[in-house]
Design a binder for these strands. Sequence first.
DNA 1: GTCTATAAAGTGATAGAC
DNA 2: GTCTATCACTTTATAGAC
Lengths: 196, 196
Amino acid sequence: MTAEEKIKEAARTVFHKKGFAATRTRDIAEEAGINLALLNYYFRSKKKLFDIIMFESFQSFFYTMKEVFNDDNISLEVKIETFVARYIDFIVEQPDLPIFLMNELRNNAEELFRRMDLRNFFQASSFFKQYQERIKAGHPLPSLLHFLANVMGLTVFPFITKPMLQYVGDLDEPDFREFVLERKKLIPTWIKKMYL
Amino acid sequence: MTAEEKIKEAARTVFHKKGFAATRTRDIAEEAGINLALLNYYFRSKKKLFDIIMFESFQSFFYTMKEVFNDDNISLEVKIETFVARYIDFIVEQPDLPIFLMNELRNNAEELFRRMDLRNFFQASSFFKQYQERIKAGHPLPSLLHFLANVMGLTVFPFITKPMLQYVGDLDEPDFREFVLERKKLIPTWIKKMYL
DNA sequence: GTCTATAAAGTGATAGAC
DNA sequence: GTCTATCACTTTATAGAC
């Protein structure tokens, strides 16, 4: 593993955990086990390094969605099931990611969305087409935006309020893990019932 | 309005918008229109001022929940309706609050929860008792924690992903406001259907 | 490429005059 | 209580030796 890779890896860890402002370049150098000067040698500045991490993190967060939502071979129901299950698995492995993104998107949002062509992706997706067809066929579905907010809210929100849920429910780490994994099966059934 | 009040008000605004680490005491002084030295004169340190804001913000976030969940005169259904409607109105007025709290709770969570006696509040609430009775009566409700995560997720999550929803749906500020206000009626109907 | 030393700027906090 | 001036320290970033 080269010094450059070590720095990026460490930057991801520390930025995800503490956010941009609370992270010191020294924290990253220490986490990476490299000399502080190398950070600027490879990445010029804290901000440039952060922008790389931010873009890649956001991209990874939407990678699953892109893949599932654009698979023409599966129905709307299976899309939701697959999306929820894969998302929960993904966030279990990267628990700091949702809060990091929600938080840092306060500053970086629009440029990043444009760069990833987010609006066009949704409107051109297999998911979008299937959804429109259902509505035309007379299904009482809510607007796509409500639907998206609901699926993502049910899936992601427990990770964002993890400290609160853990405290209220008196859950240790394995308990919490079990709690969110249960939701892989529960959320799709809830979604179906919501729109009967 | 005294200088002390001006500082607190300004601190709330700036901390909510940028978080603890990204906020400079000079930002607060400027927002308050007071001299920088007065901040330390009244509040000793940035951290002490922050702790006050954090506690009050968290308290205000749960004030509505406490009030509604402990009202013995209303049914479970009306509790949910009231809670959702009042919460959405509350956050519309304080749009920076959810992300601020979720973000800063990464550091301050457990002490704050203990201080507010959060676990005991839930377990002693009218809401909790009604929920347990329903389960005993044979209703197929999920565990209370799933239920809480669902209601709060559906209610709060759209505010946390506001930038993304606005971009994807091409919504300006009034559009977004309308979008979340619609949910005051939609969420209770969804919740009911989920647990039929 | 990697290190040490240090410049340059930012930031929290206080002393002391009024 | 409120101000100006400034200290003490942190933090990003770079110069220059190896």
